[in-house]
Design a protein around this nucleic acid. Structure first.
Length: 419
RNA sequence: GUGACCGUAGCUCAGCUAGGUUAGAGCACCUGUUUGUGGUACAGGAUGUCGGGGGUUCAAAUCCCCUCGGUCACCCCA
């Protein structure tokens, strides 16, 4: 039973009802909100040529150590997608749809890392991407869609963290200055941070270790290195958010884990989850990515939200709770099962959620199953009922008791009771 | 990749410190009390390679080693 082969692989799990249905409703709600803003669904391959993802940045963990890569029988180097933005830009470069191109997606991503609370090797994300304009109001639209989605879920403890990492040139200048500063302060940094400094200086800003926090807090701010172009863009984003009354806080050391971001970056965190992983969503602008994949230079902006973590937050805030009832009617038949075979089929065609038991069990056992099923109503068919041409209809949840009704009035009766 | 804790019935766990007859409890499940009626009560029943392998011992769920798996944290991200 506990052997290591016949079980879900590390970092994966089986989702069964009601969790499976909650996931579906989550995606349905997201689809409705993204659709209302002109975003169309896109369904992408779960794996790509590995080069697609290497565009995320050699110095990033996602590429250097978390990639599920493999060689197929044709000798192609492929990788399960660790995220979907890169695939979308690849799809854009491949098909060149007319602009603006606005798409939403939902589905699993894969990262090879140690699982912990709120972190899995296979995890679902929903997100949107919009390509084709540098207008900062598009950044605002994108952020607003995420924000309204959280509101629709009923989440109240979400914080929007906002930053600008400037243009590509700004970022290069900033990294130089930052490296210089950290080199001088090297002795005050943890050994881990010192290693990060070599591979990706920006990431040091993200460190959670106490010793680093002091050094980081006095580090030069990206905001001082923004060009006029980047400043204007960033101001317009903030102004737009203000107009929509979406609260945010500017966090200059918010740098995201993927190298392709320029200008706007943002992240959604929650206070409600009791776990170290409190980032439930994030995104930003990636104006250079399309060109890197062989398309004409095309600006883009988007976000991804973690489905599992967001649902954890919903659970903590007691909102967007799962489906209420699974079944409406349970048919109890002690005459061999043929009568229930026919009536369940009829009722199902009428749209009722109906189940029954199999295997000629005793009435008591069937009633027990009816109760456990959660159904509101039991339809009882025994010898007496068959003789009289009636069905006993019994209220399992309320005070209404039971009554015999004519067989041909069952549907009308159920419609009245279940409304 | 690093660290800490954990691994006994379907689930939650006791037993392990000072090794010793057929390994326990609660919940869930099945049957009955109720010759047609669930949710309460009572009675009975089925259920375990004590994660796996090796070692110590007359004897290991219990001690030692290895291994696999889980959880949480670091790293990083959703």
């Amino acid at each position: 039973m506990k052997n290591s082969v016949y079980r879900a692989p590390k970092g994966t799990r089986d989702l069964v009802w009601p969790d499976s249905e909650r996931r579906r409703s989550f995606i349905d709600l997201f689809s409705a909100i993204a659709g209302s803003a002109g975003y169309a669904e896109i369904v992408l391959p779960m794996f790509e040529h590995i080069e697609v993802f290497q565009r995320l940045g050699d110095g990033t963990d996602v590429v250097s150590k978390e990639m599920y890569d493999f060689e197929d029988k044709g000798g192609r180097n492929l990788a399960l997608r660790p995220e979907q933005t890169a695939s979308i830009v690849r799809s854009y470069a491949e098909h060149r749809p007319s602009l603006p191109w606005k798409v939403w997606y939902a589905g699993p991503n894969f990262r090879y890392e140690r699982a912990q609370k709120g972190r899995f090797r296979q995890f679902d994300q929903v997100g949107i991407e919009a390509l084709g304009t540098e207008d900062a109001y598009l950044d605002v639209e994108v952020i607003a869609i995420a924000w309204r989605f959280y509101e629709s879920l009923g989440l109240k403890q979400v914080d929007l963290l906002l930053n600008s990492v400037g243009t590509l040139q700004d970022r290069i200048r900033y990294i130089e200055a930052l490296s210089e500063y950290f080199e001088k302060q090297k002795n005050g940094l943890s050994t881990e941070a010192q290693e990060t400094l070599i591979s990706n200086p920006l990431r040091v800003l993200d460190s959670k270790r106490d010793e680093d926090i002091k050094v980081v807090s006095e580090a030069p701010s990206i905001l001082e290195y923004l060009s006029d172009e980047a400043k204007n863009h960033f101001n317009k984003v903030q102004e737009g958010l203000n107009k929509l009354k979406i609260p945010y806080s500017v966090k200059p050391n918010l740098v995201r884990g993927l190298d392709y971001y320029v200008q706007t970056t943002f992240e959604f965190t929650t206070k409600s989850i009791d776990a170290a992983q409190d980032a439930i969503g994030g995104g930003g602008r990636y104006d250079g990515l399309a060109a890197e994949m062989g398309a004409p230079a095309t600006p883009g902006v988007g976000f991804a939200l973690g489905l599992d973590r967001t649902l954890m937050a919903c659970e903590a805030e007691k909102t967007f709770i799962g489906p209420g009832q699974f079944l409406q009617v349970y048919v109890v038949d002690t005459t061999g099962g043929e009568n229930s075979l026919v009536i369940t089929d009829e009722l199902r065609q009428k749209g009722f959620k109906v189940d029954r038991s199999f295997g000629n069990r005793s009435m008591k056992a069937q009633m027990k199953a009816a109760d456990k099923s959660g159904a509101k109503i039991a339809l009882i068919i025994g010898e007496d009922e068959v003789e009289k041409g009636v069905v006993t209809i019994r209220d399992l949840r309320g005070e209404e008791g039971q009554e015999e009704i004519a067989s041909d009035s069952v549907i009308a009766n159920l419609e009245k009771r279940l409304g």
